[in-house]
Design a binder for these strands. Structure first.
Lengths: 341, 341
DNA sequence: CTGAAAGCGCTTACAG
DNA sequence: CTGAAAGCGCTTACAG
């Protein structure tokens, strides 16, 4: 059990000063070829690696970024992490992952715990509870301390910072228009409660598309789902009581559940009902029938968010922060599969 | 933009020494009630929080653990992270997530990069490439440095450390036996190449079950899939050329693909072919028909792994390491759904 | 009760 | 060319 070796030990062994060792290892020209060689050989033999924590303290940066997400079980968020990881690693950064579990308190605790020097910046998608409370003091505080934050997907206009989003409203508009173009008249919407920012925006896009085509918005066809458990009967009721011929769902869970409920009620997808989902995840891909969906490229979003954060971190060093925040919109597209005619 | 305040600044403002400030904040009895109050009030007002990095350097521990997984996109690994997070947070630890992308080199780089003081310990599931190469020097080295490692799921006997696994062979045996009990005779196996430890063990369980029931093992019915892309035709060929009446797949991707390929060939699941998968993920749950599967509780595995790691970390402080490693086996069970009669 | 000093492991401006 | 000193932000044994 050979513990890690330090500069101090090397210095003692070779009978030189710590400064000399440090400089030798950093290939300083100040040091004679001879000692440099000697020190480097010794260090290599003992597999010396500088202690990261000491470097962090000295440099006042940790080369670690933190991503806070509501749930890792959601495939979309997992893909975002993957995108963040790629870019972070390429740039020599590590990624700390925190889960808020959709809880405001956990989000706050996580941020406060890490804002004390442990990391260089945050990438965050708001928890449901935070969006509901509209309390963003923890994020504002971190930004005020001079720590950069990039928000993605579930963002808020109440905070000024870099953001990565998709055009949820437009994507929903296009999906709905696609159904309208197919000739469907009774198009239902499965959405979340309004305080979830993306749910609300998607609902708006749906409504806009209907109005744009002079179709009337029937409240009975709009189902707002609060809980992600036990919502099946809401969907079943919708299908049973209304003669819907198409459904637009704001996530893939709602979409696949609609397929199953329709099937139970003797309706086939896409023959009797066409269905479009949102988020191109594995459920959509492997469901039978596979689901036509709005693709929301998580890897790309994560990569972009990481890039923005790291650029800000690295630019901070040179000149003064310019405080010009930007919002990047990642393209979406409709992936046609078997659940639509 | 109020930067974080330090002990030094507080000391200067209040015209006392740094030691006095530090002790006051830690409620040391050495300090007079009076100064203590004054310092604490001031610190609270300026929202003082000790710098984590400085504490890490001082205490020689970071309260951060790292989990290295092959892919985050796999639902199983995402659930493991979730389990690790829960336990880690409860104990005041943060979780760094690294992805090896099934690559040996990335695994090595990640470990070496973090073994220099950045974290207190590792939780790891081996990449495919590492299992193939059987080169574990990076892990051995870390352990020799005195940093605890807990392996899970894809483990190896070549390394002595704490491990969390399921009994892959037994679980596969039971799944196969289940099919045999239903009266099936031509039971096919969709598995991975042998160097993936869990694939190999599951294959062994399958073979054992057949032999145990005096059924012969037909090599034509065993499909070993190397690549996770473009393997559909292998499965199609199996179904087409052999009159299989049941299939046991070692993961859910293979299982759901089998359903789709069978369907294309005009065979229905479960009417014509019964299928059992492995890993109770979202694909199995939302597939149509939903898939009977061996549940492999990722949350539980992650939680257990984190618990073992943290216990070792905290016990290290007190007495000398006892070097008694243990292997925990997490229970599995067969979740019956629609893909089996 | 308060503070100077040493130390965690490193880097670097400054002396010699 | 080499090394002592200061410093990153903290804690704590030791003096006073």
């Amino acid at each position: 059990m050979r513990k890690k070796i330090t500069l101090k030990q090397i210095a003692r062994e070779l009978d030189v000063s710590i400064s000399t060792v440090s400089k030798s290892l950093r290939n300083s020209l100040e040091i004679s070829e001879d000692t440099r060689q000697k020190v480097q050989a010794f260090a290599k033999f003992y597999n010396y690696k500088p202690n990261n924590i000491a470097l962090s303290l000295k440099n006042k940066k940790t080369k670690t970024i933190c991503i806070i997400i509501p749930e890792i079980i959601h495939h979309f968020f997992a893909t975002v992490i993957s995108g963040v990881e790629n870019v972070a690693n390429e740039n020599g950064y590590n990624v700390l992952v925190c889960l808020s579990d959709e809880s405001f308190d956990k989000e706050v605790i996580n941020m406060e715990m890490l804002a004390n020097g442990s990391i260089d910046g945050f990438i965050i998608s708001l928890s449901k509870e935070t969006q509901q409370k509209k309390d963003f003091h923890h994020i504002v505080e971190v930004i005020n301390q001079g720590m950069p934050v990039v928000m993605f997907d579930r963002v808020t206009n109440d905070i000024l910072c870099d953001k990565v989003i998709i055009d949820d409203s437009l994507a929903a508009f296009n999906a709905t228009q696609f159904l309208i173009d197919k000739g469907f008249k009774k198009i239902a919407l499965l959405t979340t409660v309004d305080y979830v920012s993306v749910g609300k925006l998607r609902t708006e896009g749906y409504v806009k598309a209907l109005l744009n085509n002079e179709l009337q918005v029937d409240e009975d066809l709009i189902v707002k789902i609060e809980d992600t458990e036990n919502f099946e009967h809401n969907i079943a009721k919708l299908i049973q009581n209304n003669d819907v011929d198409a459904i637009f769902a704001v996530n893939e869970l709602f979409a696949v559940t609609a397929i199953k409920e329709a099937y139970k009620l003797g309706k086939k997808v896409p023959d009797d009902i066409s269905i479009i989902g949102f988020t191109d995840g594995i459920i959509s891909k492997y469901s039978s029938p596979s689901i036509t969906t709005v693709s929301q490229n998580g890897i790309k979003m994560g990569a972009k968010a990481a890039k923005m954060l790291i650029e800000r971190l690295e630019s901070e060093e040179e000149e003064q922060q310019d405080e010009q925040y930007s919002t990047e919109v990642i393209e979406t597209e409709l992936v046609e599969r078997e659940s639509t005619i």
